[in-house]
């Protein structure tokens, strides 16, 4: 853990809706190093996006940050202080979303949008000239795209324009929330490769949020796997993929169809939020074939085992 750029410590979030309080993010921690491509994986509704948004001060209304702190570039702030987080992180962090066309303004040409992002970053002396540079960085020909509106370009191109806007502030950290879900496989691969290159060349850190493990497998070095607001396993990607320990990680891997060697798929049973509410427990217990009464009583802390951290009682003591 040499050069930690961004870290979340014990982040806990409740949702309060119609007077009902639910814990949707439960004590999660992760740390991202400078220049690292970090994967955050889990099914929809597992709290990946919510925790990342809250960690940069963008918790949606109806959410209440209960505990935790976020450190960025050596400065730590309590996560409850959302306004403070926004102030502290807005210059250094950019976001990239799933639906690129939705992120762009349909009434403005794409070059004007990139230019505006540059102006607002307030660090460029000549935004006009810089627009061309940014288009080149994201692999688009400025001349072809000048004067084009978002509806005139493809999804992959729109995602690249959104990238250009995100890069305008020269961020140290980029949070990419399922950036390739709406794209074709060929474009998806190009975008992932491009993100990996950004990490390398610009020393930029990226948190790649995905629901499909096979997406992060090629370019991420480390990852965290989330289920129902809890981190279940985290550490080196190769180690985890070679020998997944948590039953949920195993389930996720078994659910991905393999192109090269087709095998029977083993779907995970139940859904993310299916179990009993309001009690302290491992939230995977209602879907887990190894669940014991202990799992219904508490969520185990991180256990260091075989080069990664896993939250599961199976690995707590020597089996009887």
């Amino acid at each position: 853990m040499a050069d930690v750029l961004f870290s979340i410590e014990g982040l806990t979030i409740d949702s309060v809706r119609g007077g009902v309080r639910r814990r949707i993010v439960d004590d999660i921690s992760l740390s991202v190093e400078r220049g690292e491509l970090y994967g955050l994986v889990g099914e929809s509704g597992s709290g990946k996006s919510i925790s990342m948004m809250a960690s940069v001060g963008l918790a949606a209304s109806g959410l209440e940050v209960m505990a935790g702190s976020v450190a960025f570039s050596g400065r730590a702030l309590p996560a409850r202080n959302q306004r403070g987080l926004r102030g502290n992180l807005s210059r250094g962090v950019s976001l990239l979303f799933q639906n690129a066309k939705g992120a762009l303004n349909p009434f403005k040409t794409v070059d004007r949008q990139v230019e505006r992002a540059l102006r607002r970053s307030g660090r460029q002396t000549d935004p006009r000239a810089e627009v061309e540079v940014l288009f080149r960085v994201v692999g688009l020909n400025y001349r072809d795209f000048r004067g084009k509106y978002p509806h005139q370009i493809s999804g992959g191109q729109a995602q690249r324009v959104a990238m250009a806007c995100a890069l305008a502030t020269e961020p140290a950290l980029l949070i990419a929330d399922e950036p390739t879900t709406a794209l074709d496989v060929t474009t998806e691969r190009e975008l992932l490769r491009f993100l990996a290159r950004l990490c390398e060349e610009r020393e930029m850190a990226i948190v790649l949020i995905a629901h499909n493990l096979s997406l992060v497998s090629e370019y991420c070095r480390r990852l965290s796997i989330m289920h129902a607001g809890q981190v279940v396993e985290s550490g080196n990607l190769k180690t985890i993929f070679a020998d997944p320990l948590h039953p949920y990680t195993r389930g996720l891997i078994a659910a991905v169809p393999d192109v090269d060697q087709p095998r029977e798929l083993v779907p995970l049973i139940g859904n993310v939020w299916g179990g009993p509410e309001g009690i302290e427990r491992c939230r995977f217990s209602h879907r887990c074939q190894f669940a014991t009464p202990v799992c219904e009583a508490r969520h185990p802390p991180a256990i260091e085992r075989a080069g990664r951290a896993v939250h599961c009682v199976l690995y707590e003591e020597v089996p009887a």
Binding site: V185, T187, E188, R189, N212, S214, L215, F241, I253, D260
Partner: peptide
């Protein structure tokens, strides 16, 4: 071949992949 090479995998294939230029 290119479509197949671009497919994401749990265990990525080593070596260079045949790839297509640009987009459709």
């Amino acid at each position: 071949q290119a479509l197949l090479a671009a497919a994401p995998r749990i265990t990525p294939k080593p070596g260079p992949h045949p790839s297509l230029k640009g987009e459709l």
